[in-house]
C-alpha cells in the first residue's frame, strides 16, 4: 500500500520506496524503512499532506508520498 492512500489518523510502517532518487531525499529527512509514519492531515485543497515521522512533522506532496510503500 502507498502512503498517499492512507487517511488522517492511520499509521503504517515504511517498507520500501519505488523511486530511488526520491528515496534519498526522504531518508535524509528520517523516512527510513522500518520507521512508523502516521498521516496527520491533508492541506485544505487535498494536497500536499502532513505526516508524523521520526518525532516530527513532515509535509510532502501526494505524488511524493506515493513512492513510499507501507504495511
Amino acid at each position: 500500500m502507498k502512503l498517499s492512500q492512507l487517511t488522517p489518523g492511520e499509521r503504517g510502517t515504511i517498507v520500501a520506496f519505488t523511486d530511488l532518487e526520491m528515496s534519498v531525499k526522504l531518508m535524509e529527512m528520517g523516512c527510513l524503512p522500518g520507521e512508523v509514519v502516521e498521516v496527520e492531515r491533508f492541506a485544505p485543497l487535498g494536497d500536499p499532506m502532513a505526516i508524523r515521522v521520526a518525532g516530527y512533522q513532515l509535509c510532502l506532496r501526494k505524488n511524493e508520498a506515493s513512492v513510499i510503500i507501507i504495511s
Binding site: E21, M29, P48, A50, Y56, Q57, L58, C59, L60, E64
Partner: peptide, 11 residues
Amino acid sequence: EKSYFIMELPV
C-alpha cells in the same frame, strides 16, 4: 532541477 516539496513543519 526537480521541484520537491518535502518540508519540515516545525512546531
